[in-house]
Lab assay of single mutants.
Amino acid sequence: IRVTEDENDEPIEIPSEDDGTVLLSTVTAQFPGACGLRYRNPVSQCMRGVRLVEGILHAPDAGWGNLVYVVN
Rank of each mutant, 00 (worst) to 15 (best):
C35G: 11
E54G: 13
T28R: 14
V43H: 15
R2Q: 07
S16F: 12
G63N: 07
D18G: 13
E17C: 10
G63T: 05
H58M: 13
S44P: 04
Y39N: 01
N72L: 11
L23D: 03
L24D: 03
R48C: 15
D6G: 10
N72P: 02
N41Y: 08
L23I: 05
D9P: 05
E54H: 12
P32G: 05
R40H: 12
S25I: 06
E13N: 15
D9N: 13
N72Q: 11
P60R: 02
D61T: 07
E54W: 03
R48K: 14
I12Y: 04
L52Y: 04
I12P: 00
S16R: 15
R48L: 15
I56E: 05
V3I: 15
P42A: 08
G63V: 02
A29N: 09
G36N: 01
Y39C: 02
A34N: 02
Q30K: 15
N72G: 05
Q45V: 04
D6Y: 11
R38G: 10
I12S: 03
V27H: 03
V43E: 04
G55R: 05
I56A: 13
I56M: 07
E5Q: 10
E5G: 12
C35R: 13
R51Y: 07
V70K: 08
H58Y: 11
W64D: 11
S44C: 07
D6K: 10
N72T: 12
A59T: 06
L24K: 00
R38A: 12
T4Y: 00
N66D: 13
V50F: 01
S44G: 11
N41E: 15
R38H: 12
I1R: 01
N41M: 12
G63P: 00
A62D: 15
I1S: 00
G33V: 04
T28H: 07
S25A: 13
P32D: 04
D6P: 03
D18F: 07
V3P: 00
T21V: 04
M47F: 14
L24G: 04
T28P: 02
P15R: 14
Y39K: 04
C35S: 14
N8W: 10
D18R: 13
E17W: 04
V71S: 01
L57K: 00
A29Y: 05
T21W: 03
E10H: 09
V68E: 05
T21D: 01
G63A: 04
E13R: 11
V70R: 08
D6I: 06
L67Q: 12
R48V: 15
H58D: 01
G65F: 04
H58I: 10
L23P: 10
L37T: 00
R51V: 12
D6T: 11
L67D: 07
W64E: 03
P32N: 05
P42F: 04
S16G: 10
L57N: 02
G49Y: 11
E54Y: 08
V70Q: 10
P32K: 06
G20R: 06
E13M: 13
V70C: 08
P60A: 04
L67F: 11
G33N: 08
Y39V: 05
H58V: 09
G65K: 06
W64L: 02
N41Q: 10
I56T: 12
V43W: 09
T26H: 12
G33E: 10
G33F: 08
N8F: 08
R48D: 15
L24P: 00
V50N: 02
R40S: 08
V71Q: 01
C35T: 14
L37F: 00
I1D: 04
A34H: 01
C46M: 13
L23Q: 06
E13P: 08
C46H: 10
I1E: 02
T28G: 12
A59M: 07
T28L: 09
N72H: 15
V3Y: 01
A59G: 04
M47R: 05
V53A: 11
L23S: 10
S44R: 07
T26L: 11
Y39Q: 00
A62V: 11
P60F: 02
R48A: 15
A62S: 13
I14W: 00
V43I: 14
H58Q: 11
G36A: 02
Y69P: 05
P60E: 03
I14E: 00
P42I: 05
D6M: 12
L52Q: 10
L67T: 14
A62N: 10
A59D: 01
A34F: 00
T21E: 03
E10Y: 09
V22F: 01
I1V: 09
P60Q: 01
Y39E: 00
V43R: 08
Y39D: 01
G65P: 06
D61N: 14
G20H: 09
P42C: 07
R48I: 15
Y39L: 01
P42D: 09
L23R: 13
I56P: 01
V70T: 12
E5S: 08
I14R: 02
T21Q: 06
V53F: 12
C35K: 11
Q30A: 14
